[in-house]
Amino acid sequence: MITSLQNPLVKQMRKLHRPKERLQQHLSLLEGTHLLEEACAVNIPLTTVCCTSDWLEEHTQLWERATQQAGRAEIVSPEVLQAIATTVQPDGVVASVARLMPRSPTFPVTLGVALETIQDPGNVGTLIRTAAAVGVDGLWISADSVDLDHPKVLRATAGQWFRLPMAVSADLKQDVTSFKQLGGQVIATLPFAQTPYWEIDWQQPSLILLGNEGAGLTTELAALADVNVTIPLMAGVESLNVAIAAAVILYEARRQREVGV
């Protein structure tokens, strides 16, 4: 059992809290039982997996499967697990993997989402989880957004990170243009728009543009939209959280596709 915070493995895994270190070490952190289950379900090779003895007693089968996929497996003290986890109250297991690369979307896409400069990892993770639940088949995120392998992004996806086709876009405008050239409609979510989101025909191939939590979409990206939509709000309510806004719109798209307009 590893009990020292000075252990080289502990030091190395703690460094993965920082984006620069994840990039340099080419590793990502998976925290918690559910993420580990999902990673094992899709046969993600694990570099290292660490758990407490209490966690092991309750998850023997998952531990056996994880150790078969891991290069190294260690039992650690609760204090060590607390140190290598980014959560305040980790549930007993943390793993590292070769830096995760999402499954890229492929055209044509029937329902897609493009995210521009989204900074909050919880928002991005929730968006990914919602998009997977609705049946989105392509998500693009600008390179100046939060890292897709940020530990909080991964946790907030509830394991759907591994299932949704996604790409970090070096040129989001070009990706949106490519979608348009294939005949899809591009819908920008803008607070000053006059058209409610439910008046759009979502049964045709559609790409939703969602912008930064504070600034919204840039003028350049919004200009590529075929139509602008808004989510009507009661007086005095300034805006919705971007992940909530995405959920509202995406489920209208799914409703129309299942039952018609």
Rank of each mutant, 00 (worst) to 15 (best):
V113Y: 01
V168I: 13
I231D: 04
P196R: 08
V76G: 05
S77W: 01
A133Q: 06
Q6R: 09
K152Y: 09
S169C: 09
V42R: 08
M166E: 03
L154Y: 07
G32F: 05
R103E: 12
V227I: 15
N7W: 01
Q69K: 11
L210T: 03
F107E: 05
S178W: 08
L148S: 04
L111Y: 05
N212G: 09
A170R: 15
V134M: 07
Q89Y: 11
W55E: 01
M101F: 04
I200Y: 12
I2A: 03
L115N: 06
A132Y: 09
G112I: 10
P102S: 10
N241D: 06
A114R: 08
E31H: 02
A95M: 10
V153Q: 07
V176Q: 06
I75G: 01
A247I: 13
W202N: 08
L23K: 11
N212Y: 12
G122F: 03
Q160F: 09
A235C: 12
L250S: 11
L29D: 05
S28P: 02
A170D: 14
W161V: 01
P102M: 09
G138Y: 02
L233K: 13
V80P: 07
S178V: 13
P105D: 06
A73N: 05
P121G: 02
R99K: 12
L36P: 00
E116F: 05
E238L: 07
N43T: 13
K20R: 00
W202Q: 01
I249F: 02
R72L: 14
T219W: 07
V88K: 15
R99S: 09
F107R: 01
G184D: 13
E199P: 03
G183T: 04
E252F: 09
V153G: 00
L164H: 04
S206Q: 02
V109G: 00
A95F: 11
S239W: 11
L221T: 13
D120Y: 14
S28Q: 04
D120K: 15
L111K: 06
P151L: 04
A253Y: 08
V94G: 06
I128Q: 01
